[in-house]
């Protein structure tokens, strides 16, 4: 099998499990929507939030809900002893990394299909920004988050305290990417010109490339069971 087919095979397997059991996706979307509602109440009912605060609120909901789904992807493999089986199979650890990162990427994207409309309903009555302007920011953040998150969740799944350690290890690493995403989103919500946002999108892309490479190289060490 070529490596592309192996990656697609693994990706299909995980997505099929997800579609049948729907354990991650529903909890991700539900938890994210819950955070949005809580923050809406915390911001003061009936008050209009400005673009900066709105962008922050959207990303808090997305990041916290994404970490929920991230933990499941590896915990599921660990529970059934599947990691050992994956390592015995003729698939290289690098390909497992790509497949798992793609699973996380698609889960985040699918949950955002729910979260972004909920955000617009709750907060967006006075943002006349085009929701499509958010798409490049969402895609870049998902890429960076899923590659870093896959590496870190492989580490945290190997410890006794998976659920606690995952956000503790992941959030400091992901902080610069999130800060850039918040700023770019604030620009998009305030309908500033796209060229201004490039200033944040370019470092975000650099972050994604660096962490994809680092994750690909370091993942074999993180997943090895000895």
């Amino acid at each position: 099998m070529s490596s592309l087919r192996q990656i697609l095979f693994l990706l299909g397997k995980d997505l099929r499990i997800e579609l049948r059991k729907k354990e991650s996706l529903i909890s991700m979307a539900f938890f994210g929507a819950l955070i949005l509602v809580i923050l809406n109440i915390a911001a003061g009912i009936g008050k209009q939030v400005d673009a900066d605060t709105g962008a922050g609120i959207l990303w808090v909901a997305i990041i916290f809900s994404a970490v929920l789904g991230l933990g499941r992807v590896f915990a599921r493999e660990k529970e059934n002893g599947c990691v050992a089986a994956l390592l015995i199979s003729p698939i290289s650890p690098g390909e497992i990394f790509i497949a798992k990162a793609l699973v996380n990427f698609s889960l985040m994207l699918l949950s955002q299909l729910v979260l972004v409309p909920v955000f617009y309903v709750l907060f967006g009555s006075h943002f006349n920004a085009d929701p499509l302007a958010l798409v490049p920011i969402l895609l870049l953040l998902n890429l960076g988050f899923s590659t870093t998150g896959t590496l870190v969740s492989a580490i945290s799944a190997g410890t006794r305290r998976n659920e606690v350690l995952l956000p503790i290890l992941l959030f400091p690493l992901i902080l610069p990417l999130t800060a850039l995403a918040v700023k770019a989103t604030a620009g998009a919500l305030a309908t500033r010109p796209f060229s201004e946002r490039l200033e944040q999108l370019e470092p975000m892309l650099a972050f994604c490339l660096i962490f994809s490479a680092a994750g690909y190289l370091l993942f074999p060490f993180a997943i090895r069971e000895d």
Binding site: T148, L151, I155, G158, T159, L169, P172, L173, L175, P176, L177, A179, L180, K183, E199, Q200, P203, A206, F207, I210, F211, A214, G215, L218, F221, A222, R224, D226
Partner: peptide, 28 residues
């Protein structure tokens, strides 16, 4: 050995993060 490996991975990726943190903090 597991502790050492995981910790090494985190130390490397943490240090890789430094220039990005500095750059984004300046932009921020």
């Amino acid at each position: 050995s597991k502790r050492a490996t995981f910790c090494a991975v985190m130390a490397i990726i943490g240090f890789v993060d430094v220039p990005i943190v500095f750059l984004s903090a300046r932009l921020w």
